[in-house]
């Protein structure tokens, strides 16, 4: 599913809104989330999960093809962690807990 599919499915579930609104809602939503991450803040969406930014230090790495050592600059990278509800939901209604003893 892509953004387009999301827009169409939203219209089916919420017939009161126009195609244009559905379209701008989806783009504004992810744009707002992107901007929030750019400021370095966390996003917590109940029942879904949370997004955040991690700081990575500068490091020396190698180009796997040539073996040459390259300096990788420090950078920020986004991460996502699924919420508990979603993690459970993905595993179907029957399985919940992590394991059984031997």
């Amino acid at each position: 599913m892509t953004k387009r599919g999301l827009i169409q499915e939203l219209l089916l579930r919420q017939p009161g809104i126009s195609y244009r609104d559905s379209e701008s809602l989806v783009s504004v939503m992810f744009e707002a989330m992107t901007r929030e991450l750019v400021t370095g803040s966390r996003i917590e969406l109940r029942g879904f999960g949370s997004f955040g930014v991690k700081q990575r230090r500068a490091r020396l790495a190698r180009n796997p093809k040539t073996g040459a050592t390259v300096q990788v600059a420090a950078r920020r990278t986004p991460f996502f962690r699924a919420g508990k509800e979603l993690r459970v939901k993905l595993n179907g209604p029957s399985t919940g807990e992590g394991g059984s003893s031997v």
Binding site: M1, T2, L6, E9, L10, R13, M29, K89
Partner: peptide, 19 residues
């Protein structure tokens, strides 16, 4: 609704790509 749609899609095993 958008979050639910994403969840339902993932639950079907389909990926969701937000360009």
């Amino acid at each position: 609704n958008v979050l639910e749609i994403i969840k339902d899609t993932l639950r079907r095993g389909e990926k969701v790509k937000i360009s």
